[in-house]
Amino acid sequence: MTIPVADVNAPEVLERQHGIDAYQALQGQLTAVQGVLATKQPDKVLMVGGDCAVSLAPFNYLSGRYGRDLGVVWLDTHPDISTTEESHHLHEMVVSSLLGKGAPGFNAHHPLASDQVILAGVIEEDLRPMDHNVFDYQVQRLTPKQLREPPNALSDWVRGHGFKQVAVHFDLDALSPTAFRSIYPAEPGTDPADFPATVGQLTLPEVANLLTQLDQSAELVGLTVAEYMAWDALNLRQSLSGLSLLE
């Protein structure tokens, strides 16, 4: 089914309400996704594309379906654990909303407990003041180095907690821009060192290995692949858009 997306060129669509930019548009999309999930009642959910907020409704649904048997792996170089006190962007507070402590109007109906979530790929020395809830909510975390040494740290976490199902949010910006080019920090003509947020360090083969281990440790019932930026395709389209042949 198709989820309608609001016209972002309309000024009212981006209006800030209750501390959230584009509140009404995002609420409408969230409600639409919730309606599809409630109707279809899937055992598993796959999401591809969009920003981190695309995991909110599906992971909340999976939490309601599987309860304490569900573990959530948030594979991202940013923890997305802010509130409206630190941010106005829903995509920066998805984890806190899944814990029931985030954005007004977006908090999960089936909140996860803090020990059901692990933040994987976070670079602790680069955490910002807006990320302080990483410590306040006592959510476990693994740095890129800890994911490599040993390489089974995530599967050990799943087995150690006895999770029967697992949902993985894979934000592509967990990857290094030298290893994967279709991410925000790898914009052509820019230096990733000048990117205004933390830049990922993992490689695609490393992540593929982690996902395979998780798939073998529990039933993989949710997977998000988010924040895909196809720079070459976007730039090619924009560069050729003025040609009369393509009008």
Rank of each mutant, 00 (worst) to 15 (best):
G102Q: 01
L75R: 05
L75H: 09
N133R: 14
K145I: 10
Q140I: 02
D156C: 13
A167F: 05
L147H: 00
V168P: 01
Q138Y: 10
D76L: 03
I123F: 02
Q116I: 04
A153Q: 13
R128S: 12
F170A: 09
H78I: 06
A120Y: 01
H110F: 12
S82A: 15
Q146D: 09
A153Y: 07
L127T: 02
L172I: 04
G105A: 08
D173S: 07
V139T: 05
N133E: 09
T83W: 01
K101S: 10
R128C: 07
S87E: 07
V95G: 05
Q140W: 08
R141S: 12
Y137A: 07
G102C: 07
S114D: 14
L119D: 03
E92C: 14
H161E: 12
Y137W: 10
D136H: 11
L75Y: 11
G121A: 05
F106H: 04
D80K: 03
S155G: 12
E85Q: 15
E86N: 14
D126N: 14
E124I: 12
F106S: 01
A108I: 01
L75D: 10
F106E: 04
A120L: 02
Q140G: 13
G102R: 00
E149P: 10
A174E: 04
P111H: 05
H110Q: 13
R128A: 12
V139S: 00
V158L: 12
F135M: 09
P111L: 07
Q116D: 10
L147G: 00
A108T: 06
S96I: 09
A113Q: 15
R148W: 03
W157C: 02
A167E: 06
S87V: 12
L112N: 03
R159E: 14
Q138P: 00
T77S: 15
K101G: 00
H132L: 01
V95L: 12
S114L: 09
L175Q: 01
E92Y: 12
G100K: 07
P111I: 08
R148F: 02
L112F: 06
T143E: 08
M130A: 14
S176C: 11
P151M: 03
S97Q: 05
L127D: 02
Q140E: 15
L172H: 06
L142E: 10
D115I: 08
P151Q: 05
K164D: 14
G162K: 04
V94M: 08
V168A: 06
N133Y: 10
E125G: 09
T178I: 06
G100R: 08
S97A: 02
R141F: 03
H109G: 15
Q146C: 10
G160Y: 05
D136N: 13
S82I: 07
P129N: 08
S155D: 01
V95Q: 06
V166L: 06
D126A: 13
P177W: 03
V117P: 00
L119Y: 05
W157A: 02
A174C: 13
V122E: 10
R159D: 14
D136G: 00
D115L: 10
H110D: 13
T143K: 00
R148L: 11
L142K: 02
P150R: 10
T178H: 03
K145F: 13
D80I: 00
I123A: 09
L127S: 02
V95W: 03
H161G: 15
P177A: 07
G100S: 12
N107S: 11
G160M: 04
R159Q: 15
E92Q: 14
S87H: 08
T178C: 02
I81T: 02
